[in-house]
C-alpha cells in the first residue's frame, strides 16, 4: 500500500521546524544541513501564540504541478502526490505557480523542494503533529 504524509493535529505544532530539518536530511547519501532542501514549511499565524500552520503537499490525485511541468520532472505518484526527478528539472518554476497551497519551494540553485511522501520527517516530530499513513 502507498503511504502519504498527513497532518494529524496542527494544534500541537510548537513551530520547532524539526520536520523541515529532517526533510533536508532525508537522503541517506546526500543529507543537507539547513532548510533549503526542505519541502515542508512550518509557519505561525502571525505569531505562534495564535498557532501554527504546516505547508506541505496534500498528495493530490491529479497534481496540478505535474500537469504544468514541461520536462516530466514531476510524475504522479501512486497513492497521490508526485515523484520528483530532480535531474530533469530545469527550474522553470511553473509548478510553484500551479500549486494552490504554495507547497513547492524554490531552492537557491533554482530547482525546487517539495514533499515526496517518504515519511522521514514523522519520526522527528517531537509532538505527534505529523502522521505517515496508508491510503
Amino acid at each position: 500500500m502507498a503511504k502519504i504524509l498527513t497532518i494529524k493535529d496542527i494544534e500541537k505544532c510548537v513551530g520547532c521546524a524539526l520536520c523541515m530539518y529532517a526533510c533536508s536530511r532525508k537522503s541517506a547519501k546526500n543529507p543537507y544541513i539547513g532548510y533549503d532542501h526542505s519541502g515542508i514549511l512550518a509557519i505561525s499565524l502571525s505569531g505562534f501564540e495564535r498557532g501554527a500552520t504546516i505547508i506541505v503537499c496534500r498528495a493530490c490525485l491529479e497534481p496540478p504541478c505535474s500537469q504544468v511541468c514541461p520536462t516530466n520532472a514531476l510524475v504522479p505518484r501512486k497513492g497521490g502526490g508526485v515523484v520528483y526527478k530532480e535531474k530533469l528539472c530545469i527550474g522553470c518554476n511553473n509548478c510553484i505557480e500551479a500549486c494552490t497551497i504554495g507547497a513547492i519551494f524554490k531552492r537557491q540553485d533554482g530547482k525546487v523542494a517539495l514533499c515526496i511522501h517518504c515519511g522521514y520527517c514523522v519520526d522527528f516530530c517531537p509532538h505527534d503533529v505529523l502522521e505517515y499513513k496508508e491510503v
Binding site: 543529507p31 544541513i33 537557491q108
Partner: peptide, 15 residues
C-alpha cells in the same frame, strides 16, 4: 531571512 544549505563531510555519521 535565509534559505541556505551546507553539507556535512560525513553524510552517514551526520545522520
Amino acid at each position: 531571512i535565509g534559505r541556505g544549505t551546507k553539507k556535512p563531510s560525513d553524510a552517514k555519521g551526520y545522520r
